[in-house]
Design a protein around this nucleic acid. Sequence first.
DNA 1: CTGAAAGCGCTTACAG
DNA 2: CTGAAAGCGCTTACAG
Lengths: 340, 340
Amino acid sequence: MTNPPSARRTTVHDLAELAGTSASTVSAVLNGSWQKRRISERLANHVTRIAEEQGYALNMQARALRRARSGIIGMILPMYDNRYFSSIAQTFEDMARARGLFPIVTCTQRDPRLELAAARSLLAYQVEYLVCTGATDPDRISRLCSAAGVPTINLDLPGSLAPSVISDNFTGARELTRDILDRASVGAAPSPALFIGGRGSDHNTRERLRGFLAAHEERGLRPEPHQILTCGYAATKAAEALSGFVAAGHPLPRGLFVNSTISLEGVIRWFRQPDSPDLGDIRLGCFDWDPFAEMLSDGIVMMRQDVETMLTTLFRLIETGKPEIRRIEVPPIPLRGRRA
Amino acid sequence: MTNPPSARRTTVHDLAELAGTSASTVSAVLNGSWQKRRISERLANHVTRIAEEQGYALNMQARALRRARSGIIGMILPMYDNRYFSSIAQTFEDMARARGLFPIVTCTQRDPRLELAAARSLLAYQVEYLVCTGATDPDRISRLCSAAGVPTINLDLPGSLAPSVISDNFTGARELTRDILDRASVGAAPSPALFIGGRGSDHNTRERLRGFLAAHEERGLRPEPHQILTCGYAATKAAEALSGFVAAGHPLPRGLFVNSTISLEGVIRWFRQPDSPDLGDIRLGCFDWDPFAEMLSDGIVMMRQDVETMLTTLFRLIETGKPEIRRIEVPPIPLRGRRA
DNA sequence: CTGAAAGCGCTTACAG
DNA sequence: CTGAAAGCGCTTACAG
């Protein structure tokens, strides 16, 4: 760590003194509003040069306080360490900066208490907008922000008090399930697939389940309740669920719908245990994408959520001002691993 | 987006008026310093209750301005979307919050210009510390921050103007290479492995290369210069480098040292092309870890960098005040995929 | 036990 | 063309 050499940082007043002018003028020059104020170009250049020489850095806190606008856009996010959420964070940052906003992303581990605490923190830092990604209780956060006059937008999981940009989970899941069932029925009698991962209580899982069932119904198939394992998102939960399924004496279906790469990790680990069946006999589909997972299982189909389009849509909502509360669904993109 | 219902947010003055007291007292109560000021417990409770009723949210910008302390710790990070960096971001956030700091992480895509711009932005928002992760020119950033009196710490890549916490790249790479060479020489004459990925100009790649060569030397082996492919980190670069290597007529070695999971992605894609050799014949080692990659290749060894220890060390440096400039190396942890 | 006042660094009407 | 003044919301010596 380098030591503080200058106790106090350079301010507009320091620059004003050095330039033989006033703080008002310095501020106007530095903000580019000097033309509007009809400040002479000579003085403007002079001030600019001095600011550079002094390595002047604007104090955004002070500006924000005065302007009552921080220029900050906040995002709460369940976690960074899977490809879906990390690409959301990365794309969000890029797009925010491209629009002159300063992005602050905060991880909340799918914990409602942390989500609320993070939202409070971001409000204290005067965010101008808050994006709630995969929030367990987005409406609670919308209410909190609304009381502070801060607009919110939901991403990934919808809410009822703010516009929501989410994947088209129903259509995506139906398409994915069709593919799984078709592959599983090659050289075998058609039979229901297994659904694993996610929370039965969350909107996306419910919609994907609906798509899963719709694809079955098209083929005159009907999964039993025990073939729906909404065991949560954690990898270990998925592995445990599979063990329980087999321990209960159920035969493993040929088709497997995995609801997120997080669950997929647990599923594949389970199949790699010495006494597990061969993964090669299973027709796999996964809602969400990961480049290594895609290469891991021949013929796996992964529904890549279209993060780019989702975030472009989100920023369009922000830019258009105060849009009505509605839900926009963005189709995910199917990607297929090398066929077996 | 929900509409701003209240134009102005509640301030300490509003609370003071409602509580029939002064802003000074409200501030003291809300800060928990009311005992020191010997404010009556009755009044303290009264103020607290009113603040809650009004849903009062502190304006951190104003506090930071007055206190000349923001409570913010910044981090610049090359990217989110691989497991090493995303776990750094996640662990950093958790640890910062646990220490009462507000973390702001910013992606800079290994671009020196973006790194500098991000550092400037974070300085404008008055960060108290800046962590430079994998920065291409950490000293430049240290100088910039030093001028503003902000201490920096380097993570992942070292610099000379601030303490640096990095992986023990030499030892880790030597160990990884030993393993690759040992596996490659089973049932075959010992021969040098191929090194692929990374930048020849960065410290970590140089150190890993040194470990790679040391392990060879122990066995009396000596890789040819054309067997060192420091082609950059991008996945496509690694694939191109392999194509070039083969096109030049070089036989593919049995052992392969891949310098990062990003490069590994390209390497595996290349091996999966129809006319490529069989990956099963290759003994693979990778510096960095990814759970799916670990499961992808039987017997692959992955050096997982010890993010937890690195960040614990980093925060210890911050907490001890102004430590001398030095380099701390944290050993990575070898993880082995299921043996072939 | 408590309040009035000053000031953090900026910006913005306002007045010349 | 430019400057003095006020004020954003907070905290902190200081004075009672």
